Computed example of a mutant assay.
Amino acid sequence: MKKLRLACVVGARPNFMKMAPLLRAFEAYPHVETVLIHTGQHYDRNLSDVFFEELGIKHPDVSLNVGSGSHGVQTAQILEKIEGVLQNAASENDPFDRLVVVGDVNSTMAAALAAVKLGIPVAHVEAGLRSFDRTMPEEINRIVTDSISDMLLVSEPSGIENLKREGKPDEQLHLVGNVMIDTLLHLLPKAKQGDVLTRYELSPGEYGLVTLHRPANVDDPKILEALLDVLIEVSQKLKLIFPIHPRTEKRITDFGLMEKLKSASNLVLAPPLGYLDFLALSSQAKVIVTDSGGLQEESTVLGVPCLTLRPNTERPCTTEGGTSTLIGNDAALLHRCLNDVVAGRYKEGKALDVWDGKAAERIASVIVERC
């Protein structure tokens, strides 16, 4: 059987959780060779290297070490360096048959663009998601990546509808499920064996988990302070843990809000956490307050209320039938919903049947059969 050589690209924290089950799934095919390319879009060890260790991903075959920068600078550097990797493989008579990208970060779009310009077909995992908000850089990345990919691997029915509306032919569309959930279900038992709750003096079901990083929530001092004020007040009723993203920590410090935050005795500040520690926290929380896309999905599978600090979502199944509620950056609405959770008045939800932990197996089958 002819060897199938796949270039698998990761670059930022969510990519690692999505690529891990795919790499495992491809191991079932002896003729498939995966080459893991890490762009280095996330360079903080707590947001990058540790995930390779915890998720059991092999260390990258190729590391581009791009680092941070503006969208234009970062995208350009990834595009240039990925192109070099793909060209070198071809010149050494060992070309790639397909490039596989996941999610919606700059690495996803830049790698896809480099590949198609060299005639290498692209498979996009998590295709078709749309927030319909083009002020979000991720939305632009999704649209561009989907437009140039010929294999669109979709996590929820809305993605199929979006891609059909954009003119994609049925033969390119595959509803396969959610690889992020594959990783969650695979590692949940191990995560719950950890000691993170003990370290932070938390009891299962008796605390809330907070994450914030999007510019709409943290770049305006008035908005950020209003949100933090709600968290501080609610922490008097429900203990909260807040692993602070480096970008958010800088904003809180620059705006002179750190001392106020530290003075809240029932609000625990933590550094960025590894995936297993974070999963242990999210799976046993009473509520999650976040502006993360992935956490909307995870909370729905875990059955944990999720107050999503965004005005829109590219994952409508999490709000229509799941546990997520869109809050925007409305501090008053956040306060009301948190009180509903504490009082036991919050809605229940359930995940899609296709989010069953077998998405990666279905994806690997599609790619192998059609390459």
Rank of each mutant, 00 (worst) to 15 (best):
T253H: 15
K347P: 14
Q41T: 00
G11K: 05
I140H: 06
Q74G: 11
M258A: 12
K350I: 13
A7F: 08
T198R: 15
P60Q: 02
F96M: 02
L240M: 15
R251E: 08
H245K: 10
H38R: 00
V35C: 10
V144P: 08
T308P: 05
T308W: 00
A123T: 04
F51G: 01
S70H: 03
I244V: 15
Q284I: 03
P95R: 11
L86R: 00
R370T: 14
Q87D: 02
T318D: 04
R345C: 09
G40W: 01
E249N: 13
L4D: 13
I120K: 07
P215Y: 09
P30V: 04
R310E: 10
D104V: 07
G205D: 04
I367H: 05
R165I: 12
A25N: 00
G303T: 01
A264W: 04
G194S: 07
P169T: 08
E161K: 14
P246K: 04
I82A: 10
A20Q: 00
V354R: 13
G256V: 02
E361V: 13
D340I: 05
I140F: 11
L352K: 08
V144W: 02
T290K: 02
T145F: 06
L307S: 03
V289W: 12
I181R: 08
V102K: 05
E225C: 14
T198C: 01
Q77K: 15
E225H: 15
Q77D: 11
Q172W: 09
I252T: 11
A364N: 05
S131Y: 10
E33M: 09
E83N: 15
T211D: 11
T211Q: 04
N329M: 14
T198Q: 15
V230C: 11
N312A: 09
C337S: 13
A25I: 07
T300F: 07
Q296S: 06
L79T: 01
C371S: 15
Q41P: 01
V301Y: 05
G344F: 07
G274D: 07
P189Q: 06
G294Q: 03
S68H: 12
H31E: 15
R45Y: 14
E53P: 03
V10A: 03
F96T: 00
T135D: 12
T75P: 05
H38W: 02
G293E: 07
T323H: 12
R362Y: 08
K237I: 03
N88M: 10
Q284M: 09
A89P: 00
S324M: 08
S48T: 01
T75Y: 00
